[in-house]
Amino acid sequence: MLDAILMEQQGVPAVAIVTTPFRTTGEAMATSWGKPGYPFVHTPHPIANLTENDLEARADELADAVERCLRS
């Protein structure tokens, strides 16, 4: 979340992706940077033990949501 906020401050379009349990943390971080309601994407937890194919499938699932965030 912090990376996305800082990158956007530098003019680089960015979307944060967090796993679902970290939604509250993402919202808290956005609020601490004066951006309550900052849009981001979430995906089920965990991801670290997914196979490469599973990860690619997860990325495909998220692509539309990422695009919506970029356009918002």
Binding site: F22, T24, T25, A28, M29, S32
Partner: peptide, 10 residues
């Protein structure tokens, strides 16, 4: 320092 359990203390 905004480090509360469940929010920015995970």
């Amino acid at each position: 320092m905004n480090t509360r359990p469940g929010l920015l203390d995970r």
